[in-house]
Simulated assay, not measured.
Amino acid sequence: MPTKRTRNPSRNKQKESTVQHRVEQFSGPVPHPDILKKYDEIVPGLAERLVSMAEDSMRAEVKLKSKAVEVRELEITSRDRQEKQEHTDYRLGVLVALLVVFLFLGVAVYAISEGAYYLATAVITALAGIIWSVRRSNKTN
């Protein structure tokens, strides 16, 4: 006796299902409004206090950032002032050095014109020693 197989029609049908996924994202200094509402239901006035705390926090952060900007500007101003002072000091040092050199050379020329050759030699030797000493100290720094 032959066996007859019957097919189950429901087995061939594919079941379809739809999944809906809802994502909410909220960021900020205060909780989501729905959450705030729940807080307020639990403790009346809590939502207002939380918002007030967030506002105070934001004000403090803005104040802190503005202070940081002020400090940075003062640092820049101070550094610029220091660089200008160093440049002025350098120019003044060069000017004084030139005056000393010309003074020594003037004394040496006057000594030669008066016939005081030993004095002229001593002045020029002293000038050479000063120049050598200054150059040597600059090389070690």
Rank of each mutant, 00 (worst) to 15 (best):
L119S: 01
I112D: 00
W132H: 14
T125Y: 08
A111V: 00
A126S: 09
I130F: 12
V109N: 01
V123Y: 03
I130S: 15
T121G: 10
L119E: 00
R135E: 08
V123S: 15
Y117I: 01
L119R: 00
A122H: 06
A120W: 04
T121H: 03
S133N: 14
S137N: 11
V109M: 06
A126D: 15
L127P: 11
L119C: 02
I131Q: 15
A116N: 07
V109I: 02
T121P: 08
L119Y: 01
S113A: 02
A111M: 05
A111I: 01
W132T: 15
A126V: 04
S137T: 12
R136E: 09
L119N: 00
R135P: 08
R136Q: 08
L127G: 15
G129C: 14
S133G: 14
S137K: 10
V123A: 09
W132G: 14
A116E: 07
Y118K: 08
A122Q: 00
A126T: 06
W132Q: 14
A120S: 06
G115N: 03
V134R: 13
S113K: 07
R135N: 12
R136N: 15
G115V: 03
A122K: 04
V109P: 02
N138V: 10
L127Y: 12
S133M: 12
S113L: 04
R136L: 11
L119K: 00
S113N: 04
S113F: 01
A122W: 04
V134H: 13
R136G: 07
Y110W: 01
A128Y: 07
V123G: 06
I124R: 10
S113H: 03
G115R: 04
Y118T: 02
E114S: 07
R136C: 09
A126H: 09
V123F: 05
I131P: 13
A116H: 06
Y117P: 03
R136Y: 02
T125H: 10
Y117W: 04
V134E: 11
W132Y: 12
A126W: 05
S133H: 12
V109L: 03
I131H: 10
Y118S: 05
A120T: 00
V134P: 15
V109K: 05
I124H: 09
Y118G: 09
G115D: 08
R136F: 04
R135L: 11
A128W: 07
V134T: 08
T125I: 10
Y118M: 09
A126M: 11
T125V: 13
Y118W: 07
A120F: 02
Y118L: 07
